[in-house]
Structures are given as structure tokens and as C-alpha cells.
Design a protein around this nucleic acid. Structure first.
Length: 654
RNA sequence: GCCGAUGUAGCUCAGCUGGCAGAGCAGGUGUUUCGUAAACACCAGGUCGUCGGUUCGAAUCCGACCAUCGGCUCCA
């Protein structure tokens, strides 16, 4: 099976709908947001990701091309998108009435709603949104019909003569394109459609926010004002969506990070640099320990490499050519510039190259929890999800070409194992050669085919992500889907042709000759920062027992129960559990409340009865009350949940 | 980096058009000893993001910078 990658398997998860199961948008920085929106829109149109991507449309264009001519996978989705797209038109009318000089850009339907980009004489205020919304309601009430009209190119150019963005769109349309307009209540927009019959059908909507957005997503083009709105079939669905937005806010890792005392960012230390507090650090440590052990079991070897390195190595690796804008300025050490490391690869390669390697030594899998520093533009920083210093669970696999397939399968297996432990669903993407890339066509094709074959042999459905590979090789991106159905950066597996050449990474074959080794870059969790940030939101702060910083809060009812409470704590600690006694002078109710807010899995209430019977009254953070049980039984339960890394708090719970 | 908004006590937020900085929660002390999500009282806590300007007087007006938030672009 050489030559071409197999055709993409349709991705079942996309079949669930562009909207996630719960209708929530993926958090910013969790994964490539724009791509997500594109996918959703593509899906609403029934296009495959492949088809949309190969045409290399910028997101805005794809999103704009709502066209009934496209094959639609689900009638329901088409109708939703149509409704939302129509709402965008109605919004544009309202804005144009308010600002007669407004220049209109584009206004597509997106996941859960719509937006429209405008070039306006002044900045919009939240007040304006209210007015626009009000006017939209009037337009909806009037039930103006949407009228489609196909027009000649010249006519279109004349009609939109004072709308420069529309003119640009018309100019960019292919010669034979059908140009159509949609008109309602005297407002006409260049649009391929489709639309609902009249403005009464634009759904129950709410305008959410105003944001800046570059024309055509290009930072060199004008900055427009984008109004985001959401629209739903019924008032109830709208209310439910707004409620889900609030729920997502309640889980925001930045908020929970503070409330649960997991991490902070200090302006004095610097933006984008995470301070891990004891509880956050404990969670990270537990994950790292688990992950490290698992890697050792799977034949990886641990290494450590320095945080700074001479410019020489980054010259040779090509980082100074292709990655310098992400690297911090060098420091001078005895006349030689040294850089903070932005990646771990060069160090691992140096370790590989420290010996002559035989084909019998391969594969060599070098793993490091490697801390790297990358310059990120100030506007992009976001809690733990987008930072300037982070620790990757990085590894580089050096192998023979004939081992590549098996090694990739091994990484995929590891990735699926981790997804299961943390309770994530996932979906896979195969990213192929970008325009700016190096290496021979043959290498690219072979590597891409190998990745595709490994995915297939692991029985993993995947979608193509054309042109999204690294410049040095294709990759598999796996997205974790959290409990709200949102996407998070997950494992990535990259095949690299570049560095093995640059560093002459080789092995001696059976034939006694030197051969070029194949190199795989891979990370399973991504970075500890982003992964833990995502985990906080995934679990809404209620970590499974094995990760909970405090597993059991012991709550004495009165001070006279303190000695027994201490005794219980000692027994738990002895059993390897993390327990804490609430010895404050608060009432029991307040202690329970505090433990609840801290998402402590088990609350052990101890009073006279328990002290006498050497028991604990077990309350779960789910508000379930298990009642009194012998201390030994509780220890057995908690240990079992801990040791099996169960996502549940009790044996029978799911 | 760009567009817009915001920055007052550890947290959430008041403080109208310039005139002595406030509340609740958290914290400390004391009282209370209580059976499954907040007992009561008292106390302490702030260079109002930073720097500069206007003014008799600035948390409040102006400017620059820093940080954060919502997006764009980019990414682990």
C-alpha cells in the first residue's frame, strides 16, 4: 500500500453535528478554533473536511458559501444554518439602518449562531447591541419575505458599487459563477443563500458580543467589527444555550484555578508564566508520575536536556531560520549566544548521536517532560491554555523505516489508553503537506501513507486536514473531546524528514552500511499546562479520586470528636490516601459546604456514633449520602477507586 | 501584534457630574460544640494597575505603559 494515502474514513463524530452534543463552542486556545468553526460549517453544508480544505478557502469564504446546491447531509442542519444565516442578514439590515455608511463584509452562519463583519465609522458599544437587537425583533415581527435574484456580474458590480468588500468578493468569483442576491424589506445582500422564507423565521436570537476581526482573516487587511449572535428554533433552546454558556463559564479553568487554589499568574513574574500552587502541582505530579511509569512500561527511556543551548544547535536544526520569531532573544555566555529552548528535539538528537547506533538498537524512544519557552504575542495568552513557558510530555522515536508503521501504532495505542483513563472521547486528523515545506514528494507520500495505514490498522476513524502538516513532515492530530463535547489539543504524531538529514541521524544496518534513521516527534498530553487546564474544565474541578488533591475531608461534628477525626486521618494517610481534618470552629454544615466547594470526593462526618463504632459517615461530593460504614470498608473503597483510576466515586456508579 | 472593553481589600463588586475610600465573602480574635451546602460578635486589611499630566484638590479628567477579558491572527 504505497503511493497514496487511503481515502479518508468519514468521521462519525462529525456526523453528530457541527454543533457539539451540548451545543457549546470549543474554548479559545483549546484547539484551533477557526478550524473548528470551519468544520462545523462545512458539515452543515454536508461537505467533507477534505473537500473544503483542499480548495484552500480561508474560513470566511467557506463559511460564507452557504449554498443549497451543495449536498446536504442532514436536513435539520441545513435548516438551522439557513435560519442563522438569515438572522445575520436581518442584523446587517439593522446595522445599516443605524449606520448608513456601514460597509458590509460577510455574515455567515456558524456553530450555534451567526456573525456579520462590518466596517463602521465608530466602535460599537453594548448599548448599540441592544438597539440592533430591538430593531431585529421588529423586522422579524414584520415577516418580510426573502427574495432571491440572480444577476449578471456587471449588474452586481453596479449594485454594490459603494460596498468595497462585496466588490472584492464579486471580483474573486469564478467567471462562470452564478451571482445571486437576497432581498428582504428593501435590504439586499450579495449572497448565495439559502434563506428562510421570511424574516419571521430567523429564530429566537440574542446578540452576544462585538469583537475585532481582520477582513478575510488577514492581519494586514482592515480590522472590522464583528457582531456575534446566537439563534435557535425556540425560546427554550435559546435559554438552554445561554444556560450552557454560563455552565461553561462556571468551569472556566482560570476561575476554578483560583477557587481551588491550583495555579496563578503573577504580573510581577510575567504574563503567560504559570505558578503551580501545591494542589495544582500535586495533580500535575500525579499525572506525570503515571505517564512516566506508563512510558517506561512501553519501552521509552527517560532523558533530561538543558533549558538553554548554544545558537550553534539552533542554526543547525533550522530553528533560527524558521522559528526565530517564537524564540526569546539570546543571552551572551562567554561571547557565544545561547537561547532558551523552544523545543526538545535537538537535545534528544544529540543523545542519539552520542553513539554509533546499530539497527539492532532501534527503535530508540527518548522521552522527556521538557520545559520549553516560546514567545507568544501578548493578545494570545490565555490562562493555562496559551502560555509562554510550558512542559511538553515530549518524546522522539528513532527507528528504521520498516519500524515506522508499528511505532506509530504504538503511539496511537498509548494515546487511546490515556484518553480512556481521563474519560475523553477523541477524533483524529491526518494533516498533510503544507505549501511551505521541505523534502521529496516521495518521502511525503510514503510517510503520509504510513500514518494513514497505522490509523486504519488501529481501527481509528479520521479526517484529512490537507496542508496542515508541519513543514518537515505530515502528522496525526488527535483532539480530545471533553464532557461538554468541546475539542482540546491532544496527541500529535509527526514524521520528520528534516532533522535526521540536518543532524545526520543514522544507524548501521545489517549490511554494515550507514542508513538514515526515521524520526517521530510525538506528544500525548500536549503540554502539562494545557492538559491540566483542559482537565480542570473537563471535570469542572471535580477530579477523579486518584487526582483529587484532598481525597477525603474528615468533618468532626464537635470539638470532642477531633481526636477520633485525627485518628481516622492517620489511618487514611497510612493507607496512602490524601486526607485532611477540618478542625475549624465552624458548624458541620459549613465544613460540608467548604468541602463541597473544593470538590473533595469524600466527606467523612464523624460524631459520637462513628467514634464508638470505628466508622465514618460517608458523604459524596455528588450530594449522595452513603451513611455510616466501618472505617476499614471506606479505606478499601477509596483505595480501590484510587488505584484503578476510576472516574467514579463508588463501585457500582458509572 | 491588531480591534474593543476592563483594572478599587485575597475574592466578588459599590463609589453619580473631581472634595477625607465602602460592602459582602475570605482572614484574625473571642463566644458557640452543633448530624449532611454558610452560627454570632468584634478586629484587621487598600500608594484605587504603573508612570506622568491637568487642578487648590484626582479612584474619578487627559496621556503613555503594563496586565486582564472578548475576538482576530498564531499555537503545545
Amino acid at each position: 500500500m504505497a503511493g497514496h494515502p487511503s481515502p479518508p474514513t468519514p468521521l462519525p463524530i462529525l456526523g453528530e453535528g457541527g454543533e457539539t452534543e451540548h451545543g457549546l463552542r470549543t474554548p479559545k486556545y483549546a484547539t484551533r478554533n477557526t478550524q473548528y468553526v470551519v468544520r462545523s460549517t462545512e458539515h452543515a453544508l454536508g461537505m467533507t473536511v477534505d473537500a473544503a480544505r483542499t480548495e484552500e478557502h480561508p474560513m470566511s469564504e467557506i463559511a460564507q458559501e452557504m449554498d443549497i446546491q451543495l449536498e446536504v447531509e442532514s436536513q435539520e442542519e441545513l435548516e438551522l444554518a439557513r435560519m442563522r444565516h438569515s438572522a445575520a442578514h436581518v442584523m446587517a439590515q439593522a446595522v445599516l439602518e443605524m449606520f448608513p455608511d456601514a460597509k458590509l463584509a460577510i455574515g455567515p452562519a456558524i456553530e450555534n449562531g451567526f456573525y456579520y463583519d462590518f466596517d463602521l465609522p465608530r466602535s460599537l458599544t453594548p448599548d448599540d447591541l441592544g438597539k440592533i437587537e430591538e430593531r431585529m425583533r421588529e423586522i422579524r415581527a414584520a415577516a418580510y419575505p426573502f427574495v432571491r435574484k440572480e444577476i449578471a456580474r456587471e449588474e452586481a458590480l453596479a449594485m454594490f458599487a459603494d460596498q468595497p468588500y462585496k466588490l472584492e468578493i464579486i471580483h474573486d468569483l469564478p467567471e462562470d459563477a452564478v451571482i445571486s442576491t437576497y432581498t428582504h424589506d428593501g435590504f439586499t445582500d450579495l449572497c448565495r443563500g439559502p434563506h428562510v422564507a421570511d424574516t419571521s423565521q430567523i429564530g429566537h436570537f440574542k446578540l452576544l458580543n462585538v469583537a475585532g476581526a481582520y477582513w478575510r482573516g488577514d492581519e494586514k487587511r482592515p480590522m472590522l467589527q464583528r457582531i456575534y449572535g446566537t439563534s435557535w428554533r425556540s425560546e427554550e433552546e435559546l435559554a438552554a444555550y445561554l444556560h450552557r454558556l454560563e455552565e461553561a463559564q462556571r468551569r472556566d479553568h482560570r476561575r476554578l484555578g483560583r477557587e481551588l487554589d491550583l495555579f496563578s499568574v503573577s504580573e510581577e513574574i510575567g504574563a503567560g508564566l504559570i505558578l503551580w500552587h501545591p494542589k495544582g502541582a500535586l495533580i500535575r505530579h500525579l499525572i506525570e508520575r503515571f505517564e512516566t511509569d506508563e512510558h517506561l512500561k512501553r519501552g521509552y527511556q527517560l532523558v533530561y536536556t538543558p533549558h538553554i543551548a548554544s545558537a550553534e544547535i539552533y542554526k543547525r536544526s533550522g530553528h533560527l531560520e524558521t522559528y526565530q520569531e517564537n524564540m526569546y532573544a539570546p543571552m551572551d555566555i562567554d561571547g557565544t549566544p545561547y537561547y532558551l529552548k523552544p523545543m526538545n528535539c535537538p537535545g534528544h538528537i544529540m543523545i542519539y548521536n552520542s553513539h554509533v547506533r546499530s539497527y539492532r538498537d532501534l527503535p530508540i524512544r527518548l522521552a522527556e517532560l521538557g520545559t520549553v519557552y516560546r514567545y507568544e504575542r501578548s493578545g494570545t495568552l490565555h490562562g493555562m491554555l496559551r502560555v509562554r513557558g510550558f512542559t511538553q510530555d515530549d518524546a522522539h522515536i528513532f527507528c528504521r523505516p520498516d519500524q515506522l508503521h508499528g511505532e506509530i501504532m504504538g503511539v496511537l495505542d498509548l494515546a487511546m489508553f490515556f484518553a480512556r483513563v481521563f474519560g475523553y472521547e477523541y477524533k483524529a486528523f491526518l494533516a498533510t503537506r503544507p505549501e511551505k515545506s521541505i523534502g521529496s514528494d516521495e518521502n511525503w507520500e510514503r510517510a503520509t501513507a504510513t500514518l494513514a495505514a497505522a490509523l486504519r490498522d488501529m481501527g481509528m476513524a479520521y479526517a484529512m486536514d490537507p496542508g496542515a502538516g508541519a513543514f518537515y513532515g505530515p502528522k496525526i492530530d488527535i483532539k480530545f473531546l471533553d464532557s461538554l463535547g468541546r475539542e482540546w489539543t491532544g496527541p500529535t504524531i509527526q514524521v520528520d524528514f528534516n532533522l535526521p538529514e540536518r543532524f545526520d541521524v543514522s544507524y548501521v544496518g545489517e549490511d554494515g552500511e550507514r542508513h538514515r534513521a526515521v524520526m517521530i516527534h510525538r506528544t500525548v498530553l500536549g503540554s502539562m499546562e494545557r492538559f491540566v487546564g483542559g482537565l480542570i474544565e473537563h471535570f469542572a474541578g471535580a477530579f477523579p479520586v486518584w487526582l483529587a488533591p484532598v481525597q477525603a475531608e474528615i468533618i468532626p461534628i464537635a470539638d470532642r470528636h477531633l481526636p477520633y477525626a485525627q485518628q481516622v486521618a492517620a489511618r487514611l494517610v497510612e493507607a496512602g490516601l490524601r486526607a485532611e481534618v477540618d478542625d475549624s470552629s465552624d458548624r458541620m454544615q459549613a465544613k460540608i459546604r467548604r468541602a463541597q466547594l473544593q470538590r473533595v470526593p469524600y466527606m467523612l462526618v464523624v460524631g459520637d456514633k462513628e467514634a464508638e463504632a470505628e466508622a465514618v459517615a460517608v458523604r459524596l461530593r455528588t450530594n449522595e449520602n452513603l451513611g455510616p460504614m466501618p472505617l476499614a470498608d471506606f479505606i478499601a473503597l477509596a483505595r480501590e477507586m484510587n488505584d484503578t483510576k476510576s472516574l467514579a466515586l463508588t463501585r457500582d456508579a458509572s
